[in-house]
Amino acid sequence: MFFAQLKNELWKLFGKKRTYIGFGAFLLVQTLMLLMFKFTRWESEFEKLLAGNGYLAADYISALTVALLMLMPQVLLLLPLYVALVGGDLVAKEAEDGTLRMILSRPISRFRLLLVKWLAGVVFSALLVVVLNAVALGFARLLFPWQGLFVFAPIHQIFQVFSPGAGLALYAFSSLFIVANAIAQLSVAFMFSCFNIKPAAATILSLSYLFMNMVLENIPFFSSYKNWFITHHFDSWLQVFTSPTPWAQIFQSEITLFAISATAFLIGAVVFQMRDIKS
C-alpha cells in the first residue's frame, strides 16, 4: 500500500504542468549560457587564465569545464527556486484546491500522507538534479570537445584540473551532494506548506529563508558563524573538486543538511497533525 500511495503521489506530481517549469527553465538557461560561452569573449578570457597558470587551454576548455561552470549559478539560485516551488505546493496546493479534504476523509494517517508526499518531493528533487547535470553536460558536449576538467571557483579557493575520466567521475559524484541541497530546500518549503497558508506563501517563505542565509553568510561579521547558515553547507558539491578533498567538512555539511531536512519534515508533520482541515 505504501508504494501504491507513493506511486499515486508521483502520478499527481508529474501529471501537473507546473512540475515541469524547472526542467524547462534549466533547458532555456543552459542554452543561453552555452551560446554566451561560445559566442562571446569568455573563451579567450578563459584561455588567458589557463595559460597564465601554465595550462594548455586546448586541454581544458571542454564540455566538462563548461558544464560545471553552467551548473554553479544554477545550483545556487535556480535549483532552490524550482524545488521550493514544488515543495511549497505539495500540501498547501491540495488544501487550497480542496482535494486534501477528500483524501483525509479516508483512513490514511496524516503522518503517512505527509511521508509519501515528502518522498515524492525527494524523487522529484533527485530527478531534477540528474536532468540538470545530464543536460548541462550533453548541451556542452554539442559545442565543446571532450577534454579534461578545469574547476575555477575563487570564492571557494578552488583551482583544479582533472583528466577527462576523473573529471567525469567527480562531476557525477558531485550530483549526489546537489541532490542533498535540493532535498534540504524542498523540506523547508514542504514544512511551510504544512501550515495553513497559500502555496505561494510557502514557496516565498522558504526562498526568504534561503536568501536570508545567503545574505548573512556574506556579511563579514557573521564569518565565524558560517556553520549556522544552510547556504554554507550547500557548497559541499564544489568541495569534492578540491584537493585534498575536505571529507570531514563535507561530512559535517551533509549531516547538517540531513538534520535540517528531518527537522523541517518533523515540524511540518507536527503542525499538520494539529491543524483543522476545513473547506
Binding site: W11, K12, G15, K16, K17, D97, G98, T99, R101, M102, S105, P107, S279
Partner: peptide, 14 residues
C-alpha cells in the same frame, strides 16, 4: 466510511 463534500474537488488534469 465514504464521504462527499460540497463542490467535490479532484485532480482535474488526471
Amino acid at each position: 466510511v465514504g464521504a462527499i463534500f460540497e463542490a467535490p474537488a479532484f485532480y482535474d488534469y488526471l
